[in-house]
Amino acid sequence: MRIDSHQHFWIFNADRDAWITDDMEAIRQNFLPIDLAAVLKTSGIDGTIAVQASQSHEETQFLVDLSTMYAMIKGVVGWVDLQSEDIEKHLESFSRYNIIKGFRHVIEGEEDPDFLIRPAFLRGIKALTARQYTYDLLIRPRHYNSTLACVEQNPEQRFVLDHMAKPAIRTKEFDEWATFIEKLAVFPNVYCKISGLVTEADWNNWVVDDFKPYIQHVITCFGKQRVMFGTDWPVCLVAATYEEVMKIVETGLEDFSEEELDAFWGGNAVRFYGIK
């Protein structure tokens, strides 16, 4: 099974989706599974992980409802208020949906560099661990230290790093990011999505070689059994087509065996998210 481990669906709302700015005109519209089906088929992708794009329990329910209509959705990474005193009640409510594999919070939007180690947030992570849910890490450089601290305090929690922590490819910054990746990859319970890179490059003038050192570093650090393919569709459309995103990733897989390629394109995501 070939899996796109990271993509989104939404019915565009200018107020709720304020992060989609005017310079992202290509994605200021609705995107639903029917809009993705054809490109998945031509790209040989069997299914996707639908990841939350806004922070509400209604968003999680929206993705669950879509999964009942579209078999391409193999798993949902929703949103839940991890800092809520009612976290157990919320998770109990969501537990009736087997399609929900884990949760995510848009940490990159939080100015507090220690958001990930707030006591209330850590309590929420413990609740996820107890129910065997995954957690997607979406961060910026100011969160590097707290990310490492959070992961260290939760050795039984399955984490996956979204978009390789969004390295600053546009300005070719590397060293600080690379050091963080090395430190994070030490923890065996952390995986990494090779996804979302094209939007961190120059949207209009990127070349494939821009991405190679970043992809190679992640593979070197995490190994070939803890990395997975993702497109970040439709966000990627501001800079590249689905097919172009796949070609960018393929350039970093030249020394993969057939078995390792199967793991990268789907097997690792199936194992991490517990896809049946």
Rank of each mutant, 00 (worst) to 15 (best):
R2I: 10
R2Y: 08
D4P: 03
S5W: 00
H6C: 04
H6E: 06
H8P: 04
W10M: 04
I11W: 00
F12G: 02
T21R: 11
D23R: 09
M24R: 13
A26M: 07
A26E: 11
I27L: 08
R28H: 10
R28L: 07
Q29G: 06
F31Q: 02
L32R: 11
L32P: 05
P33I: 09
A37K: 06
A38R: 10
T42L: 04
I45D: 09
G47C: 14
H57F: 08
H57R: 03
E58N: 14
E59F: 08
Q61A: 11
F62W: 10
V64M: 04
D65M: 08
L66V: 05
I73T: 06
G75E: 05
V76K: 01
G78H: 02
D81S: 04
L82W: 02
Q83F: 00
D86K: 08
D86H: 12
E88N: 14
H90C: 02
S95D: 11
R96Y: 00
Y97V: 06
K101F: 05
F103H: 01
I107K: 00
I107V: 10
E108R: 01
R118S: 05
L122G: 03
L122V: 01
L128T: 04
T129K: 00
A130Y: 05
T134W: 04
D136P: 01
D136W: 00
R140V: 13
S146T: 01
S146H: 01
T147A: 03
C150S: 02
E152A: 03
P155M: 05
Q157K: 04
F159M: 12
F159L: 05
V160P: 09
L161H: 07
L161D: 10
D162H: 01
M164K: 11
M164A: 06
M164R: 12
K166H: 07
P167K: 15
R170Q: 11
R170C: 14
T171C: 10
K172W: 13
E176P: 00
A178Y: 13
K183S: 15
K183T: 13
L184S: 12
F187M: 12
V190N: 14
V190E: 07
V190H: 07
K193H: 12
K193M: 08
S195E: 12
S195G: 11
G196P: 09
G196L: 12
V198P: 08
N205I: 01
V207M: 07
V208M: 08
D209H: 13
D210W: 15
D210L: 14
K212G: 01
K212R: 14
V218L: 02
T220N: 15
G223P: 07
Q225G: 07
Q225E: 13
Q225F: 02
R226T: 08
M228T: 04
F229C: 12
F229S: 10
G230D: 12
V235N: 01
V235M: 10
C236L: 08
V238P: 04
V238T: 15
T241G: 11
Y242V: 07
E244R: 08
K247N: 06
K247S: 14
I248W: 10
L253P: 12
E254K: 13
E258V: 13
E259D: 14
L261E: 10
F264A: 09
W265R: 13
A269D: 05
V270F: 03
R271K: 13
R271P: 00
